[in-house]
Design a protein around this nucleic acid. Structure first.
Length: 860
RNA sequence: GCCCUAGUGGCGGAAUGGUAGACGCGGCAGACUCAAAAUCUGUUGUUCGCAAGAACGUGCUGGUUCGAGUCCGGCCUGGGGCACCA
């Protein structure tokens, strides 16, 4: 007796075995024919996949399988972004060695990913924490150093004085260390930097060629790079030969200047602090704000008068005060600004607080010069200059040019392009990362580790029983001889920022097993760029910009030919779930909540009331998580994958619901039943097409072929939810047809055509079910190796159209007319419709708009 | 604070400036069943109406247009990023 239920667990495991045995997804060393490189952002091996991974990897797999079916040579690899802080936290909190913890996590996550039936070429798997990976980036770093793309400078870090460690921004909570609770200080450390700013112009102009990137990501990167044109201008100090250089984008407002503000880390501030206790205290206070821009910008704007004054460049005899202010960044521009309170809100707030003059110099159109005054809001819009001597009467852009010309003529400054982008600091004072291949010699300085001594391996015999970097405490590791003079020297104990590993892994996947080089040039040139990159929007700036830079730097050093690593980018939204709180206020897991008989939410064990919170991104801290492993074990991977695709478009956040997964599960079973237990006996596969079809069969065929064309188009545009809706419509129609049209001409043949089409269309989304249906229908080939179906163009055209008839923009009737009917005919038919006649009540319409094949609007 | 982004039925969403709500979820009614589950059928934006139908309706507000969810201006609310989480 045939089973009347789909045995998901058995079927999914079986097809996964078949794919693996036949190496269906293995890519050749080089592509033969048109290539398509699909890459999903590789995961940090936390030990368990979460729904965000399920979503990300399902999206990538659909793209990969669809392209494969369309005849592309697809490269679809997976690996592990295996260095990072959580491994060290696990070591500190649970005493597990980061290497052991990471490798075990990788093994566990690999099994979970495999259970999803993803079409990866697992033979290319990489883990960035292994020396056979990171040795190559040590070499790249040294090549960058030779090429002048690396330098060393002092830079600020968050310092926890109790733990004697550097803290990440996320480890600083309200100005205190997350573990110690101690007030965090800023400290200067000597660190390595990569010259990303050397490529500012190129990184900016390259954005315009990334036409398959989301517009918003390009805008975010553009703002991040932050090109601005302005003036560098020296303000001479009174009673001193010295000056303060400021950068401004508003030289037009110079006549409204009422103060100069310098960063707390400006050399002049440091010098004054030596003898000015109040200033020293203020600088110390600024150092407690932390290093993040958000913290600085949201802190109250404060300043201290230095007592110094500067001379105005245009107004003879006018002097203005110099403040040290907490909102001026040393890293941006020159570390000093001038303030024009009338035309900048922050400057205005500052001026009000410290009683500084507010002198308007840009007059908005319509305002009178005599009466115009600034109250609570600065005037930042356009206008015409006044109160400004030689600039009077000019527009803002004219005044900028004129002010710059005058300053240049006076020799006080120059027109400059300033960038917001800062060089990339890659040093981290951490153990679980790639060692920086440098040796510090007291006589020779910082010396690169000779290439033949690479890799500098991370020692595994370390202990975490005292705070700080274990590499510093290691008894022997850092002690070496200088490669240059042979004298006693020490290894660099800092490791690379983990963005370093993720900045070139896409190239490593092109030849993941090369031993002496990071990747073979011909393989990288053949496979790159990644045709479609898929990952979270949270990487819009840093990871994606660093990768773009790194690829350029590699090109500069002769490693590869492409400059842009990712030709197409899809940024997926987060997976959210509603939150639950118990009556005592603690967060609850979804499985701890149930409905009581009266429909109220209650705690499963205690029966106490549960409060439903709003839906938020799934996170362990709020406990609003659903474990994918549990879902896959219960409903199968295809159900989880279908749900990930069906409800929301990929860029948007997705709301995980129990009922949504139920709906997907029902569909999986419906499609299986429709194929395994059809009401019509199906003809054998490859049965010849009948000569004629009943009207009903013909219209089903037309639907089948319109669905093929539509789904293909949807998948190309990543509109997976629409593709799913279309396939459901088609299977709904097949299901009705199967139940009702037993005798029509060609009915059984059309049903088979529909079922085969359904299997092929769902193939990228639900690959196991698709294989199962394909084999039930008598095929001995693998669906994963079957070509994408082709729509018959003759079945795609409709010969009648429905036209809406509006009166004054409101729908009043619809009519059916032959496609491409002449407008006059359509207009006269429309005006004869009873509803239209009665609304017009005998009066002639004032105007009739006819849009062919769409709509008629009667203006009454 | 700055940059980016979203807002449409009870819910997720669909809609080249041209019939708002495809498809799914949930609800309601029914079939099957001793019963339940599963499955299947019908119905379902809101209000008024016996009905035909009408009015209202895409966060709020103003505008452009024969016609606006879609374009433009202002506002409100939610989300992402802000350089050491990845």
């Amino acid at each position: 007796m045939a089973d009347d239920r789909y045995n998901v667990g058995e079927a999914e495991a079986r097809w996964q075995r078949v794919w693996e045995q036949k190496q269906v997804f293995k890519a050749g060393r080089l592509p033969n024919g048109p290539k398509y490189y699909v890459l999903e952002m590789f995961p940090y091996p936390s030990g368990k996949i979460h729904m965000g991974h399920v979503r990300n990897y399902t999206l990538g797999d659909v793209v990969a399988r669809h392209r494969r079916a369309k005849g592309y040579d697809v490269l679809h690899p997976m690996g592990w972004d295996a260095f990072g802080l959580p491994a060290e936290n696990a070591a500190i909190e649970r005493g597990v060695h980061p290497a052991k913890w990471t490798r075990e996590n990788i093994a566990a996550m690999r099994e979970q990913l495999k259970s999803m039936g993803l079409s990866y070429d697992w033979s290319r798997e990489i883990a960035t924490c292994e020396p056979d990976y990171y040795r190559h980036e040590q070499k790249m770093f040294l090549d960058f150093l030779k090429a002048g793309l690396v330098y060393r400078k002092e830079s600020w870090v968050n310092w926890d004085p109790e733990e004697n460690t550097v803290l990440a921004n996320e480890q600083v909570i309200d100005g205190r260390g997350w573990r110690s609770g101690a007030l965090v200080e800023k400290r200067l450390l000597s660190q390595w930097f990569l010259k990303i700013t050397q490529f500012s112009e190129d990184l900016l102009s390259g954005l315009s060629g990334l036409d398959r990137w989301p517009e918003r990501v390009r805008v975010m990167q553009e703002n991040w790079i932050g090109r601005s044109e302005g003036l560098r201008l020296k303000w001479a100090l009174t009673n001193s030969e010295d000056h303060i250089e400021v950068f401004t984008t508003r030289p037009d407002t110079l006549f409204g200047a009422s103060f100069v503000a310098i960063s707390a880390h400006h050399p002049i501030a440091s010098r004054l602090a030596a003898t000015n206790a109040r200033l020293a205290d203020f600088i110390a206070e600024c150092d407690r704000i932390g290093t993040s821009e958000a913290a600085m910008e949201t802190a109250e704007k404060l300043g201290v008068d230095t007592g110094l004054t500067v001379r105005h460049p245009f107004i003879e005899g006018r002097v203005i005060p110099v403040y040290v202010a907490n909102f001026v960044l040393m890293e941006y521009g020159t570390g000093a600004v001038f303030g024009c309170p009338a035309h900048d809100q922050r400057d205005l707030d500052f001026a009000r607080k410290y009683g500084l003059e507010v002198r308007p110099v840009v007059l908005p159109s319509g305002a009178a010069p005599a009466t115009f005054a600034i109250e609570a809001e600065a005037h930042t819009e356009d206008g015409v200059l006044f109160n400004s001597d030689f600039l009077n009467g000019l527009t803002v852009p004219e005044a900028k040019a004129a002010a710059i010309a005058k300053i240049e003529a006076q020799g006080l400054g120059t027109k400059t392009v300033n960038w917001r982008l800062r060089d990339w600091g890659v040093s981290r004072q951490r153990y679980w990362g790639c060692p920086i291949p440098i040796i510090h010699c007291p006589t020779c300085g910082a010396i690169p580790v000779p290439a033949e001594h690479l890799p500098v391996k991370l020692p595994e015999d370390v202990s975490f029983d005292r705070p700080g970097n274990p590499l510093v405490h290691h008894p022997t590791w850092k002690h070496v001889n200088c490669p240059q003079c042979g004298g006693k020297a020490e290894r660099e104990t800092d490791t690379f920022d983990t963005f370093f590993e993720s900045s070139w892994y896409f190239a490593r996947f092109c030849s993941p097993h090369s031993e002496d080089i990071g990747f073979e040039r011909d393989a990288a040139d053949a496979w790159l760029p990644v045709d479609q990159y898929i990952g979270g929007i949270e990487h819009a700036v840093l990871h994606l910009l660093y990768s773009r830079f790194f690829t350029r730097a590699l090109k500069h050093c002769g490693y590869l030919t492409v400059a842009e690593p990712f030709a197409g980018l899809l940024t997926q939204g987060m997976v959210c779930h509603e939150t639950f709180k118990s009556d005592t206020g603690g967060w609850l897991y979804p499985e701890e909540v149930t409905k009581s008989d009266d429909g109220a939410l209650v705690h499963v064990e205690t029966g106490t009331k549960v409060v439903r919170g709003r839906s938020e991104k799934m996170s362990k801290s709020k406990r609003n998580v659903v474990d994918p492993a549990h879902i896959i074990a219960t409903y199968g991977a295809d159900t989880a994958r279908l749900f990930m695709l069906s409800d929301s478009p990929p860029e948007r956040d997705l709301e995980w619901t129990e009922s949504g997964i139920d709906g997907a599960w029902r569909y999986v079973n419906r499609l299986w039943r429709l194929s395994a237990l059809p009401a019509l006996p199906l003809p054998p596969k490859d049965a010849p097409m009948p000569d004629s079809f009943s009207g009903r069969a013909q219209s089903i065929r037309s639907l089948i072929h319109r669905t093929i064309a539509g789904v293909d188009d949807d998948l190309d545009k990543f509109q997976f939810n629409k593709a799913v809706a279309r396939i459901r419509e088609m299977t709904n129609a097949l299901s009705d047809f199967n139940g009702s049209d037993k005798d029509g001409d060609g009915a059984a043949w059309v049903l088979r055509e529909g079922l085969e089409t359904a299997a092929r269309l769902v193939g990228p989304m639900m690959p196991h079910l698709a294989e199962e249906v394909w084999s039930i229908l008598g095929h001995e080939t693998l669906l994963a190796q079957t070509a994408w179906p082709k729509a018959d163009p003759s079945l795609l055209v409709d010969d009648t159209v429905t036209i809406a008839i509006q009166v004054n923009g409101k729908l009043r009737a619809t009519i059916q007319v032959p496609k491409d009917s002449p407008s006059e005919t359509v207009e006269s038919v429309a005006l004869q419709q009873p509803q239209i006649v009665s609304i017009l009540a005998g009066k002639p319409p004032r105007k009739v708009v006819v849009v062919p094949n769409r709509i008629v609007n009667v203006v009454a």
